[in-house]
Amino acid sequence: ETSWNQSLMGNIPTTPMAAAQEIADCFFTHENAGVSIIDLQLPSLDLRQGARWYDAVLAADVAHLLVERLVQRQRDNNVDANDTNKQTPSSSKKALLLVRDEATVRSIERVWEKRALSFTEDDTEEEENDEEEDEQEMSNNNEETTVLYDDFADFGFLESIAAVESLSTSSPNASDSQQKPRKRNTETIDRRRIQLQSLFGEAIISEGADMEQKVIRALQSNVVSYLKEQQDEIDTIAMIAPVTRPEVMAICALVQKYAKTMRIILINPHFAKPRPMELQHAKTVYSLRPFLVRAKDSRKTLTKIVVLKRKQEWEVFISDSASEQFERLAVN
């Protein structure tokens, strides 16, 4: 991270907000359907590298902030396209954020709820100003302004940025000792546009002869029935770390059913090679792969490589022992 060359390589995705911002910028605004892949190979966000460093809450923060940005952008586009005073149902779409099981949902929810209750006062000045304006606008909310501010998600978004940025780790207890709780109406934390759910609920699905049947059954009761109820509301499905065979099978089923009408985002997925047929056309929107290079006959690993994809091309950056910062080595 100390060698990162921001002017060449873009925003450093070392905080959930920075990652969400950088990745959101790699989506084209007209991409409203189809499957996109985010491939962020940082150990705390990447279950493919093992569970030792992986932080499910941090990964959920990135996903949450990213889909929030995309949904907001879509909403802004739709509002621009329509009369701003008449917000159509299509201008208030929502996202479904999927994780593996209910235990993961519960641990993420616990941290998010805790954060919602304990805002800190060490926000940046800009965030303070934004929040002051938001509070003023909310306190002025009445019938005349209802049309303009009919959805407080915008303000919830700013607050969730502040919350995420203010926490150095996502541990459930991280805010206990150091952070001073701020009195705040927790109802202003808007989660209405992001629904966190699990693929399989409480079901434990292992590989075996009845795997497919179990996957379909669990998917039906946890995701498909919900999407059926909300089909006019939800336009984005994001799944964090589908890495096991049952999860990939579930994703393939969802892609088959919804990819033509919804935007599906897979964050750090792992598929067998060759890719499953349903995912052949999935596009890698953003990829960051850090490596250390060493000669075959040496243990010395002073050369750092980052393979990065932000738009169409893949770039390779290098920083050896003599370089202070990464320089661009090649474009593929």
Binding site: F291, T303, V316, I318, D320, L329, A330
Partner: peptide, 23 residues
């Protein structure tokens, strides 16, 4: 998906050799 590790390694090797030659 993406460049092969062999290609990345070859780029790095070329770069490091060039750097060594310069120094």
């Amino acid at each position: 998906d993406g460049p092969s590790m062999e290609w990345v390694a070859a780029c790095a090797q070329q770069y490091l050799q060039q750097k060594n030659a310069e120094s």
